[in-house]
Write a protein that binds this DNA or RNA. Sequence first.
DNA 1: AAAAACCTTAAATCAACATTAAATACTTTT
DNA 2: AAAAGTATTTAATGTTGATTTAAGGTTTTT
Lengths: 224, 224
Amino acid sequence: MRLLLAEDEEELSEALAAVLRHNNYSVDTVYDGQEALDYLEGQEYDGVILDIMMPKKNGIEVLKTIRAHKNQVPVLLLTAKTQVDDRVEGLDAGADDYLGKPFAMKELLARVRAMTRRREGLTDNLLTIGNLSLNRLTFELSVGEEKVRLANKDFQMIEMLMVNPGQIISTERFMEKIWGYDSETEINVVWVYVSNLRKRLAALGADVEIKAVRNQGYSLELKK
Amino acid sequence: MRLLLAEDEEELSEALAAVLRHNNYSVDTVYDGQEALDYLEGQEYDGVILDIMMPKKNGIEVLKTIRAHKNQVPVLLLTAKTQVDDRVEGLDAGADDYLGKPFAMKELLARVRAMTRRREGLTDNLLTIGNLSLNRLTFELSVGEEKVRLANKDFQMIEMLMVNPGQIISTERFMEKIWGYDSETEINVVWVYVSNLRKRLAALGADVEIKAVRNQGYSLELKK
DNA sequence: AAAAACCTTAAATCAACATTAAATACTTTT
DNA sequence: AAAAGTATTTAATGTTGATTTAAGGTTTTT
């Protein structure tokens, strides 16, 4: 599941993102309302977590813009204010849920789960390219009857590749989304995972491959 | 017995859920009408407790939607209003019972029991998978003539697993439903119960086992 | 042929899960 | 109201599997 997190307090944002990533979500972080809208135009998310108080454009404005564009992505609003007015305004503007700060991580996770569960029914949970399929609910990668269950990181890597087949995804992008952009982890961990995934694809007999494009990144392509 | 509790006042909701859980119900809590409908689509419940005044969709609307979908699940309406009008509207819409706030916990429990008793006749109170059976009335887990009576928590755990055999249930889901999602209890209590249940299954000679799927949760599967 | 970018493997580390026993809380009996 | 019995939770320790590091190899570019 791919989430966009718009929260201007950097520390809080990183803490939230870390917990979410740990729970198998791929997370993009942005720090103001305008940036949130830019990211939302660029790609599909399974859910958006919006702080209400943010620079440039506040959460409610962002939400209204999202809905004005007929985008039905689930939105969870975060805010320090707990006045009923605010809550009502948020829900009126089309929020799916609402969480007042401060909140427990557990509670946030529970709400995010509730929010994305709804989507599980609607989204196509089976990504397919060539003869390769990825079940986003069971984490199973398969070719025909052959299946393997992927672990957290393997799954997120192949998911990013399969969501945008043919497109080049840079090593930095993988790092940002899966490990978090200030992660201490060495960059070559991405190479290691690419290597592992290639072995998996070969073992399954997939007709797609992960191609490296020097200085650019990786893309998933049909073998010829 | 599995209940859905839709009540937007968080404190009240948590208090009710705690009491119900203590009385051997598995409880999902939701905080608005829309969420209630989402949960009801996703799974079967043995009863629903609906507050009338809730955000997004009120209890009556939810109830009407439930009945429009030909779902006969028993529904108990809660409300602050005690006007006859309201009561009539609720019962017209297909409620099984009606309780005005404030109410005594005892009374609520009595009504919930009455509401679910009816269902006891209809529901299969003997869950069976493989050679393992669980009697939901006597709390007895059995294989052939061998029986053990389970305590509250053990029972709810195995019940959740047996209601959805083969499906993976996350540790968080167990926590949310059995302990309540804001419970202070450590997560490893789930591991302890799994361990206990496995011992029980082995002692009974069951041909099913509780499998762990790393990072995902547990599922009940036939041994091979 | 040197440098940079990427690949592969295996060992080291870390986090998730398993098990057990002891501590606490709760109920029932006396 | 104390004692006994049962249920539940915590804590300590062991095991397994996932993740990261590190080191040496290959390919491409200059």
